[in-house]
Design a protein around this nucleic acid. Structure first.
Lengths: 182, 182
DNA sequence: TAGGCCATGTAACCGGTTACATGATTAG
DNA sequence: CTAATCATGTAACCGGTTACATGGCCTA
């Protein structure tokens, strides 16, 4: 999914500034399946406005930085609904951790242990985040997606905890490991 | 994970041609957590050879196209083992499907149904693929990762099947949907 | 007074994709 | 005879990241 569709989808639900969009995508309910940064949000917003799919207004509260609040236009809404007609692309998933796990025999046990534990901690944090989002969640689609993430992450954690030992047993068992800079 | 590390990791296990590497990454045991295409494999292989982290030899069987088989060098092995020392980056996950699910109320029910069912079919295919890989699997790290994928995908499917109805109930329920080109 | 949050933006860079070019062999 | 598989590569393009620039307010 490109930044354009994503931002249109967000603005379809609510008005927002670039800053807020970024927050939603890194800490908010979108963060589970999305990944985007300032460097693409602001330019995209500008392009969207140039195509008049969104409009903006400046808000100025005393003692606060200027906010540029974007709203979706009727044309933008049509674009968005239209984009929903094409079947969604497959998920993209990349995991460095799994490469490390696969090659565990070459890794130093301490490093592997740290990698597993950091992953567990990360997933637990994510789970907690999702739970706070879905706890008092009024939007049903968001609940559905939140429940999805919660379920899958729980399974993920389950496997990790249950099989931590098995992976650790492999760590560093390879022969012919060159004396590398560690 | 960049193409370089990934290819080095693969070549650390076995010699391979660019074509074979690509196969492993799209249909083989790496396909679950990796995503790479010819356009990055061949140039990367060339770069790797220029840095003498890998070497190549030409194989020519009668009646078959020429094969350029790459092997990792001692220097490459060291580079690879060294790269295992830095903690792995967080997983990258992007899902268009989940965006569609979140905005299900704006989607046409038929489209949503198709999206869910295609996802189910896809996951079932992936699961089967993983199972064939892990069934007679001699490399333990690969088994561990395969088991991981299997477990998580099973949970994924579970949620999808159990909550298909709930999502369908939301499909197309939004008011104020512009008469878009569908 | 240091660091974090609010807030907007730009420029350079890069990793990787898509599409193209080429061609032989084999299976249906 | 057609489609798929084996096999290698290039060039243009692009979406997005990283790092930078700027600055005021609030909290510890």
């Amino acid at each position: 999914m490109n930044a354009k569709t994503l931002i249109l989808a967000i603005l379809n639900f609510q008005e927002a500034t670039g800053y807020e969009i970024r927050k939603m995508c890194t800490e908010g309910p979108y963060s589970y399946f999305v990944d985007i940064s300032y460097g693409s949000i602001y330019p995209t917003l500008a392009k969207l406005e140039a195509e008049s799919l969104v409009s903006s207004r400046i808000e100025q509260d005393v003692g606060k930085p200027e906010r540029k609040v974007y709203s979706i236009s009727e044309k933008g809404r049509m674009e968005f609904v239209g984009s929903l007609a094409t079947p969604p692309a497959l998920d993209k998933f990349k995991s460095e951790f799994l490469l490390v796990a696969m090659t565990a025999e070459y890794g130093n046990p301490t490093t592997i242990a740290k990698a597993i534990d950091m992953r567990i901690a990360y997933l637990e944090g994510q789970l907690e985040m999702i739970r706070t989002h879905t706890e008092n969640c009024e939007h049903q689609g968001t609940c559905w997606v939140g429940g999805y993430g919660e379920h899958v992450m729980q399974c993920d954690l389950e496997y990790l905890k249950k099989n931590r030992g098995a992976l650790m047993a492999l760590a560093g068992t390879a022969h012919n490991v060159p004396a590398a800079a560690e």
